[in-house]
């Protein structure tokens, strides 16, 4: 018996797909929300902050269930999407949504801290030099919080690789479709004689997380040098 089954390889690839897509799609939104929280005085900021951070403190299973209610056949969003023949439940899209929602607070938190630590004077200076608010954001605030954005993306990516509770409820545990590494491990441990296979996937999981950390460290160092 080889170290990894073909289904394990599939799970690894799926995990990557989910984590990458969730992180890449969430980042622009995360930057936007972080900016609103860090640098503006909009009404309802506290509420926005609460909603964004809620998935951090709620059990992922609860988040998954709420998403299921929302995206289900009779849910608010589910109904609308059904008209366009788009289905979220038990699909890869569902897994991505679950990961995005659970990882989002980590992303926003990190970017926000980064943006708050950028001296507002740079922004002022750029305005007196003729840059409009958007221009100043894109050329000054965002590049200066680049490290924080990267750190947030790393956290979110890692969180998505490990996401279990919300995913199993919203997307199910379908091998080859939504079965990511944690779900595959769960299945192995609940079937007789699967311990060895579970252990090898655990090993893969550790390796992947380690690679993510190393890559993020290297990227941060490159940014520091600039």
């Amino acid at each position: 018996m080889s170290f990894l089954q073909p289904s394990d390889i599939q799970a690894i690839i799926l995990s990557f797909k989910v984590a990458c897509t969730a992180t890449v799609l969430s980042t622009p939104l995360g930057i936007g929300v972080a900016y609103l929280l860090a640098h503006t005085r909009i009404p309802g900021k506290t509420v926005l902050e609460g909603v964004v951070n809620l998935p951090l403190v709620l059990p992922p299973v609860v988040v998954g269930y709420l998403l299921l209610v929302l995206f289900g056949r009779n849910g608010w969003i589910g109904q609308v999407l059904a008209r366009f023949d788009i289905h979220i439940i038990f699909t890869l899209t569902g897994a991505i949504i679950a990961s995005s929602v659970v990882g989002f607070p980590l992303l926003v938190r990190s970017i926000r801290l980064g943006m708050e630590s950028v001296d507002a004077s740079y922004n002022k200076a750029s305005r007196t030099l003729g840059a409009g608010p958007w221009d100043a954001f894109l050329t000054i605030t965002l590049p200066l919080s680049g490290r924080a954005v990267l750190a947030g993306m790393t956290l979110m990516f890692a969180r998505s690789l490990g996401e279990f509770g919300a995913t199993i409820i919203l997307a199910g545990n379908i091998p080859g479709v939504t079965q990511t590494i944690p779900l595959a491990i769960y299945e192995y441990t609940s079937s007789p004689g699967g311990d060895r296979m579970a252990l090898s996937l655990c090993f893969v999981s550790i390796l992947l997380s380690f690679i993510v950390l190393l890559a993020s460290g290297a990227a941060t160092r490159t940014l520091n040098k600039r």
Partner: peptide
Amino acid sequence: LKPEKRRIGVVFQHAHLFPH
């Protein structure tokens, strides 16, 4: 008028050169 429209240049005490 917004700062970028006033055409008034400012040299700040701490220079505020863009570090990146």
